[in-house]
């Protein structure tokens, strides 16, 4: 058995070395586009991956933050650069939503996909002294007096808003009956919740982890297919009989038409990073959920998200075309 695995390992190594020798990519530095600002969560992940890639492939991977237009500027800059693999882009869920909002012509189809690195499901949270002990009670109350309820979590039409719309719709509650209080992200929404100015927030659980741990915020549900091992007591929506899961995701993509060998080199290097303990430790510390998908699965997932989210955006009145 041991011999077998050793042979396997050597043959893998051989194939890997051979392919590396064959494909000379990368010959020079590879620029990494991050569509979000320096210091934020996506930026931290991008910079971590860039520093690991530098070790893995031996060439510099300088990160460029090209922010603006709800991610439209950075995604477009990445998608419309030369398809030679020397510009890779950290793509996020907004790729699937912004063109429906009429912000850009860019769609998921303008990219070839390398690897999906992460997925964070949405949560449903209320203040610790709120009267609703579980999701059922909350939704009953919402059904009874929807106009009383204020939900928050991010900007209008942002990922956590879409998660909220989908949940309410699947629970049979008219989505426009409750108010969505737009903010610039999860952190200000948490302030609003703690101050008692909104009733419910729907950001990811790790974003509110310290307030949950301190007993100031009560999580009621998670919009995922299975429970999160970091929050084992929080039930999924499916357990409450609501067939809905939603969340944000991040991954690397290259411009459409990039040679397959180049994508392979990038994917293999990144796969090695995602298999490492360092990666798991980094993701754990930052509260990012780990979910790795290869090029084909990631492309399929992005396509799927595009149609799924279109429906939700239509319900929320965000569809522009």
């Amino acid at each position: 058995m041991r011999k077998m695995s050793r042979i396997l390992m050597f043959s893998f190594l051989f194939v890997f070395l051979a392919s590396a020798a064959f494909a000379a990519f990368p010959e020079r530095s590879v620029s990494v586009v991050c569509p979000w600002g320096a210091g934020g969560g996506t930026d931290r992940l991008t910079r971590f991956m860039a520093s690991q890639l530098e070790k893995e492939l031996g060439k510099p991977f300088p990160v460029t933050n090209k922010t603006g237009g709800n991610g439209a500027v950075g995604h477009s800059a990445g998608a419309f650069s030369k398809p030679d693999g020397y510009t890779i882009t950290m793509v996020t869920l907004e790729l699937a939503t912004m063109h429906w909002m009429g912000l850009t012509e860019l769609t998921y189809a303008d990219f070839d996909y390398v690897i999906q690195l992460n997925q964070d499901p949405a949560g449903v949270m209320v203040k610790a002294d709120a009267p609703w002990k579980n999701l059922g009670e909350l939704l009953e109350a919402v059904k009874a007096t929807p106009e009383k309820f204020k939900f928050s979590g991010t900007a209008a039409g942002g990922v956590w808003d879409l998660a909220r719309i989908g949940m309410l719709d699947k629970a049979g509650i008219p989505v426009n009956a409750v108010s969505w209080i737009p903010t610039t992200g999860a952190a200000p929404s948490i302030i609003e919740l703690l101050g008692g100015h909104v009733e419910v927030i729907t950001c990811s659980l790790p974003e509110a982890a310290s307030q949950i741990a301190a007993g100031e915020i009560r999580p009621l549900a998670i919009m995922a297919d299975i429970r999160d091992s970091a929050f084992p007591d929080v039930p999924t929506l499916k357990e409450s009989g609501i067939d809905w899961s939603a969340g944000t995701w991040r991954g690397f993509a290259v411009p459409k038409g990039t040679p397959a060998e180049v994508i392979d080199v990038l994917y293999n290097a990144m796969k090695k990073i995602t298999d490492s303990d360092e990666y798991k430790e980094f993701m754990g510390k930052n509260g990012f959920g780990v979910l790795v998908r290869g090029p084909k699965e990631f492309a399929e997932f992005a396509r799927q998200q595009d149609t799924d989210l279109k429906n939700v955006m239509e319900l929320g009145g965000y569809l522009k075309k």
Binding site: T67, G68, G69, N70, A72, V73, S76, M101, G102, L103, T104, A155, A156, G157, P182, T184, Y318
Partner: peptide
């Protein structure tokens, strides 16, 4: 730029750089 409460681009003249 983009109006935070509705996501509507205002006075941008279609320029993406002005969205923010």
């Amino acid at each position: 730029g983009m109006d935070i409460t509705t996501g509507l681009p205002r006075f941008t003249g279609g320029n993406m750089e002005l969205l923010e």
